[in-house]
């Protein structure tokens, strides 16, 4: 395929993915907005004042970046895993497999769809959060780059899950047993400086901690971890997952059999 043809094909997948989650926005965009609004009301408004300050900020202001990031993570992941599994289930994945599309274009299309949903939900949650706290931007580049990279990372992870999934139940196992615990323990609601040395060290093994902290740094200018390490970890995960996803597509795992 020529580059123009690949571009047309990529755009086709992206628009299709975009329309998919927009068409069902009540299931895709609205729930995370409602959930985070509840977090803001309960943790920020009701319980927050009793907690007091966290790292020198109002508790509400401290948790906002983490909550936005949590929405981005879950939604980019969920988008790709359910869309890809859905296209295996309905077998319309075959429409792409039969065409001359290179695997990396298929992957790029799905991942871009996941990023799109992550970013749109992220923006929606940010708008809601502005009703509860006045967000200030400390470093716009860091905010934008971490959101895009994190969304890309979890879209890829969702893709891998989608390839392995054999039933609708399989698409919720990783989010429930891995993603949610890691996110909650990833410093969304607290600074790891509150933990004992041992638990601080354990927390450092959690990749989500790096994303949440880098993102928070973009707004508040404070972080528990080294930003350079954070970017290195995020990019490292992306490269590894990208290579693995392409390998799965090339061998046709669970799709060409």
């Amino acid at each position: 395929m020529t580059w123009l043809e690949k571009y047309i094909a990529y755009k086709t997948i992206l628009i299709r993915e975009f329309l998919r989650f927009i068409r069902i926005w009540i299931q895709t965009i609205l729930p995370p907005v409602i959930t985070t609004a509840l977090y803001f009301i309960i943790f920020g408004n009701l319980i927050g004042p009793r907690i007091g300050d966290m790292a020198g900020f109002r508790y509400m202001d401290y948790i906002v970046p983490g909550l936005i990031m949590m929405a981005v993570i879950t939604n980019s992941y969920a988008n790709v895993v359910s869309s890809f599994f859905g296209s295996k289930f309905h077998r319309n994945i075959e429409e792409m497999l039969i065409s001359p599309l290179p695997n990396y274009v298929i992957l790029a299309g799905y991942v871009s769809g996941g990023i799109a949903r992550g970013v749109i939900v992220g923006i929606a949650v940010t708008v809601v959060s502005m009703l509860f706290s006045d967000l200030k931007v400390h470093d716009a580049f860091i905010i934008i780059s971490t959101v895009l990279l994190t969304a890309a990372l979890f879209s890829l992870a969702g893709f891998v899950n989608g390839v392995y999934a054999r039933s609708f139940d399989d698409i919720s196992i990783i989010p429930t047993f891995v993603l949610t615990p890691l996110t909650y323990l990833g410093g969304v609601f607290y600074s790891i400086s509150m933990l004992s040395d041992f638990w601080q060290k354990v927390s450092m093994a959690n990749p989500i901690l790096y994303m949440v902290n880098t993102f928070r740094y973009g707004f508040l200018g404070v972080t528990d971890i080294d930003l350079f390490t954070a970017y290195a970890i995020i990019i490292g995960f992306i490269v590894a997952l990208y290579v693995f996803s392409l390998h799965l597509l090339r061998t046709g795992h669970g799709i060409r059999n």
Binding site: M1, E5, K6, A9, I13, N92, E95
Partner: peptide, 23 residues
Amino acid sequence: EFNFNIFEPVQEIVMNQAGYYGI
């Protein structure tokens, strides 16, 4: 076996297929 996304409109199914070929 039917292998299209049953939730997609007819026209979109055919047009997307063209898209995958870079048309």
